[in-house]
Write a protein that binds this DNA or RNA. Sequence first.
DNA 1: TGTATGACCAAATTTGAAATCTGGTCAAAT
DNA 2: ATTTGACCAGATTTCAAATTTGGTCATACA
Lengths: 213, 213
Amino acid sequence: MVARTDRETKILDVAADMLVRHGYRRVTIDDVAVAAGIGKGTVYLHWKTREQLFGAVFAREVHGAIGDLVTALRADPAVALLHRFAAEFFLAILRRPLLHGMVIGDVQMWGKLIGSEAGYDGGRHNAMMASYLGILAARGLVRTDLAVPELTYAFQAVYEGFIYAERTAAPTGTYEDRARLLSTTVESAFSRPGTADAALAEEVAALLSGLAA
Amino acid sequence: MVARTDRETKILDVAADMLVRHGYRRVTIDDVAVAAGIGKGTVYLHWKTREQLFGAVFAREVHGAIGDLVTALRADPAVALLHRFAAEFFLAILRRPLLHGMVIGDVQMWGKLIGSEAGYDGGRHNAMMASYLGILAARGLVRTDLAVPELTYAFQAVYEGFIYAERTAAPTGTYEDRARLLSTTVESAFSRPGTADAALAEEVAALLSGLAA
DNA sequence: TGTATGACCAAATTTGAAATCTGGTCAAAT
DNA sequence: ATTTGACCAGATTTCAAATTTGGTCATACA
């Protein structure tokens, strides 16, 4: 018998794959169990409800994307700069089929997963961004003529504008191109000249890791 | 008997009011006719279909907003500068209850009106923005290290990010505050120092008026 | 003895046909 | 010549029956 954790991983893998292919509404617990080669009851040994299972899938994706960001941050501290951060985050989401699908596809299709507490807390995300921008402001790496709450609001609006544009705008070029455009836009809108050292990168990485608690 | 144009205006007024209050789906042609104090058939003397009537309401609102913009442009040529333009356009939309409702409210509720050909053509809007940015680029009033199509894409993403944020973000301060924040963001992201004269304002006003053809 | 299962149940969802409503027409009234 | 509202077909809504599915647990199994 496989270890409990291996089975959990297998179920999440299968569920993620089916979610990408068929969407939230169409995937049943039994579908997942059959595809994972186990009984339906066994799924419930791992998660109490359907929503919690799919929430776990979503959370794993988000944590994976955050993990990619942290890796990028440690490989190159300059990613701690706001414009680099924006581009890396943008790509970290679009590179993952499930998250990409949630961004591009019909919001309706993902039902309770979006905006539900299960898996990921948007409020915490907001607080994290505010902390991050506070740190950058303290080091003079972003403009300081705007208060941190305004800066946070504006940055989020710009970032989400580019994410939203993926859904609506006619797709020109690759999304790496769009990530560069986002980076350029954020840089001139909010960044101030300066460099990021490993200590800053680590601080930001710690903030991000806190999101995955 | 009132002039034909007056009756048309009356119907559009009544329809706009009912659209704001009840939403696209809930308003019937008969509702509008009764509220306007005329027979249902009379409505059809002015528009061939329901969609065309509501499209006309929508078009009138958009043209009104554009008219406000043109007025602002003629009163102060500096509104031709991209960041001023963004803020004025933002406010021109949010100040009109119907458009504000379409931005804030459930997209679903406005059905075919959004994205339909009736009343307003998004493709033309796009082309207008590209022309406008081309004119600003030629005068050095926006950054020229980005090609006009990229500049247009990025500007639209930022603008729509702020519009979209009206729907999702927790409302802090007034929307005049958010318009200022948008203006500041667009200014540092895309604008270059320079002044706008009356000739430029008139050129931009002409472009805008072309949208209402 | 602890783990896994799928038959089972209640609740949610879907289906489909009947009832109702509404966009659009046009013969009649003005 | 202009306006109207009764009228009709097609769209939408209703509502109950049929089906599906989330979640449980007695049983099988290792």
